[in-house]
């Protein structure tokens, strides 16, 4: 099964996006502007990657963003970027764990 299909079925998430490293949208599900989100994720990935390089922290694995209304995980993998969104109040650490587990298979 396509990892994106599995990820998009993680309980608690409201949207999921798959994009390439340049920010081009490959797949998306849920209530979100996938094109914009894919571009934002790619840009953030590049900027955080630069920060990590400067600090000697190695390669970027994922970025977790929390806000009162919505949380998101942007997972960076060779050749693609996968991100999932969940509404506030959901047990987001569980989603993060599931996503990491799926992407490491």
């Amino acid at each position: 099964m396509n990892p994106f299909d599995v990820v998009s079925k993680i309980p608690g998430i409201v949207a999921a996006i798959l994009s390439d490293e340049s920010g081009n949208l490959l797949e998306s599900v849920g209530n979100i502007d996938g094109e914009s989100a894919a571009a934002v994720n790619a840009f953030a990935r590049e900027s955080f990657g630069k920060a990590g390089d400067i600090l000697g922290l190695g390669s970027l694995d994922r970025v977790v963003i929390a806000s009162p209304t919505r949380s998101a995980i942007v997972a960076v993998r060779p050749g693609y970027v996968m991100s999932v969104f969940a509404d506030a109040g959901k047990p987001f650490s569980t989603v993060e764990k599931k996503l990491t587990e799926i992407l490491s298979r």
Partner: peptide, 14 residues
């Protein structure tokens, strides 16, 4: 309205 951002790297965190 972001409150926190955690960037996980292979050898550390920001």
């Amino acid at each position: 309205d972001w409150e926190s951002i955690s960037a996980q790297f292979s050898e550390g965190k920001l």
